[in-house]
Amino acid sequence: MITYFTDIYHGLISLFIGMGITFKEFFSPTVTVSYPYETLTMCDRYRGHTQLIANEEGKPNCVVCGLCEKACPSNCISLAGEKPEGGKKKVLTKYILDFTRCSLCGSCVESCNFNALEFSKEYNLASTRKEDFIFDLLKRLEEKNK
């Protein structure tokens, strides 16, 4: 009989303790960011999609060795290059990243020995079309240089 009443008592107390905690939380400041109006800066190592690094002239560092293409587990990189007349190095003509398949593992960036690839800080990517996520990185680089 005594336990009947002590149980009720302790139960009630536990409920009031819980309510006390939520009461305190009610008056604490909010911790969320109302996203489209405020945004946070991404940290240095944030992994967006990859992008090409340009040298001083604004041309990509890439030498079209194709290591990134081989390293990619999901086969989402395809690149092409050609040797210009009289030039020594191959020049990148096309670098397509199929972002729909990319899993952001970073194998391509790691495999690159020529400092030609890096992660972008792009996170506002949204589209209803699949084709919008097949990036031409060379074009992106040119747009960035403008």
């Binding site: 940290c43 240095d44 190592r45 944030y46 992994r47 899993s103 952001l104 593992c105 970073g106 992660f119």
Partner: peptide, 15 residues
């Protein structure tokens, strides 16, 4: 997640 992101670059599916 913020700490892990600062080190690894991703928040959920780390590599």
């Amino acid at each position: 997640l913020d700490m892990l992101e600062a080190v690894t670059g991703s928040r959920l599916t780390y590599c």
